[in-house]
Design a binder for these strands. Structure first.
Lengths: 206, 206
DNA sequence: CCTATCTTGTGAAGAATTTCACAAAGCAGG
DNA sequence: CCTGCTTTGTGAAATTCTTCACAAGATAGG
């Protein structure tokens, strides 16, 4: 299969959200132009992105909202629910844990870890915070697919190494650090400072 | 001046962090190759990125760490401290508020807003949470440069409109929504669900 | 001063991504 | 069934971004 660029995947994710909104608003069909307007891109871009995976529209009519929804869900692998572990039970971990949107979109948090003995054993909702040392057992028992790393930067590489050793193949990292993972492990970074610096650049330039 | 791509700016931000690490480790000079290795890119990319803004290195020697640090800081506009407002005093807002790294990097939170009357008036450290309605006065009094939006998706556009009306020209949005801002206002989105969906795609494909 | 060794800065080549533009397909109305 | 209007899917063109490759500057050692 062709190589799909990261930006194309991001846009698919965006289209998915726009389609959900259109669906909730009762729309039956939607055109590439409408998707483009709402998503801040161009109709040609929308069609190109979709054409990477097949042809889902009807000429003259546009796309069926429910069909395109389910096509994109299938492309993104969102038809199963993913089992997620959260590493780091600090403020950020807590905020992510109680963010209900994940659940709604099929990302279920099944385990929480922290290395601080004062936190280990306390409960968050239905979950008990486990010690980092228990990671291997818990990850395998819970069949975790994806890990979210919300620990300080200087602990992040160690945590990631352990996750990889335990067989986790997708990691979302919030620590401001450039992490090494072996080929075959997907890693995404959310780096807020970096985004703020991007804004600083824009302000500085203007 | 040439147009600078968003990815180039992100990389500069990354180089800055790597340089800070190298500086802390006592390095006097660093080569494009070393920066590339640590940053996961190539030496040619590093040199191209830097060459967009000038020539800061010495042939045969590499770059002076302190000099390159201060050059990149200047490029990114990080020599002043930026005055930041946080809109939304929920869990995420709270986590962002207590993230000490922002302060250290020159982003000072000077105001916190929420629309919930039960939160308004309570204090977070040295700051009192203000009502959204007070935004205009407070933003002008505090000379806010950058706003961080951490409110639910359905409130985000309204908040952004108000911020823009109050003269804010840089916004970091955490709500899962595609927001409209007029030309001249810089907007960055941090969208965790989108990143998770990217991981889902990677897992699904493999 | 001369040679050997680095490493930068940068045109030019190459790759990837986005935009253009249009034939083909579908519908509506007569 | 024909005409007019719409919107897709997609090669080709244009643009943007990355990598290559090498001349030229800088140092060190003799």
């Amino acid at each position: 299969m062709k190589k799909i660029s990261e930006s194309a995947v991001r846009r698919l994710s965006l289209y998915l959200r726009l389609l959900q909104e259109a669906d909730a608003a009762g729309a039956e069909t939607i055109s590439s132009g409408e998707l483009a307007d709402r998503g801040g891109t161009t109709s040609a871009q929308v069609r190109k992105d979709l054409s990477l995976f097949g042809s889902f529209g009807k000429r003259g009519l546009g796309y069926s909202v429910p069909e395109l929804l389910s096509r994109i869900r299938a492309i993104l692998g969102l038809q199963t629910t993913w089992r997620v572990a959260l590493v780091g039970a600090g403020k950020l971990g807590s905020a992510l844990f109680s963010y209900r949107d994940f659940e709604r979109r099929g990302f279920h948090i099944r385990a929480v870890f922290d290395s601080d003995p004062r936190k280990v054993g306390t409960t968050w909702g239905r979950l008990t915070i486990r010690d980092d040392e228990e990671m291997e057992d818990v990850l395998r028992a819970e069949e975790i697919d994806i890990a979210i790393v919300a620990v300080p930067a200087d602990a992040a590489q160690q945590v990631v190494d352990r996750l990889v050793r335990c067989g986790v193949r997708a990691i979302l990292n919030f620590a401001p650090a450039r992490l090494r993972v072996p080929r075959g492990v997907a890693l995404k970074n959310v780096d807020v400072t970096l985004e703020l610096e991007g804004l600083s650049f824009a302000l500085n330039k203007a």
